[in-house]
């Protein structure tokens, strides 16, 4: 979060300077005016969004999702895994270690890659943000259009990496893969 804040602060400062150079203080003020309007219009939506995010985080524990992932395989496993990914809370620093924790359980690679795509494409806790900060119609279209992506990825991975696990996703059994950092 600190890194993001630093990136956004530096980018904002640079853009304010560019805006000033391009159009003087009047253009900067116009830009601020746009920002204030957006902030005022989004305030209530943001509040509701964060309430939703907090409730989802409490409702769905890691243990429940863990159970789902280990219980199903095949096409059902792919669908459940994509859905579980979408429900999983937190950023990449939380879900990647979670996925890595399945290494010893030898879960198929296609289930895990589907989970990653499900998390990144669906991320249900992100939808309120997408609705309030971008646009409700765009959010609806984007989410509907991208629903098949994790499922297609899962099916392709099942087809091409059927017997692979997270430990050896790109190598045949017995072959060594020098670039796999799972042990690190």
């Amino acid at each position: 979060m600190k890194k993001s804040l630093m990136v956004i602060s530096v980018s904002t400062a640079i853009f304010i300077i560019i805006t000033y150079v391009v159009g003087g203080s009047s253009l900067v003020l116009k830009g601020f005016n746009n920002s204030i309007n957006t902030a005022v219009q989004s305030a209530l939506m943001l509040l509701a969004s964060f309430i939703i995010i907090g409730q989802i985080q409490v409702l769905l524990s890691k243990e429940i999702l863990n159970k789902w992932l280990q219980k199903f395989s095949g096409i059902r496993g792919i669908i459940i895994s994509a859905f579980a990914g979408g429900l999983f809370p937190g950023g990449p620093y939380i879900y990647y270690p979670f996925i890595l924790s399945f290494k010893e359980k030898e879960l198929p690679f296609y289930i895990l890659i589907t989970f990653i795509f499900g998390k990144q494409v669906y991320d249900f806790s992100r939808i309120p943000m997408e609705v309030s900060l971008v646009d409700s119609n765009i959010a609806l279209i984007r989410n509907l259009i991208t629903i098949p992506i994790p499922i297609i990825v899962g099916l392709l991975a099942q087809r091409f990496f059927h017997n692979r696990t997270l430990e050896n996703p790109f190598t045949e059994a017995g072959e060594k893969d020098g670039s796999n950092h799972c042990d690190s």
Partner: peptide, 10 residues
């Protein structure tokens, strides 16, 4: 929001 406002006018 500030960055977006600037991008919008730029």
């Amino acid at each position: 929001f500030i960055l977006a406002g600037m991008i919008e006018v730029l």
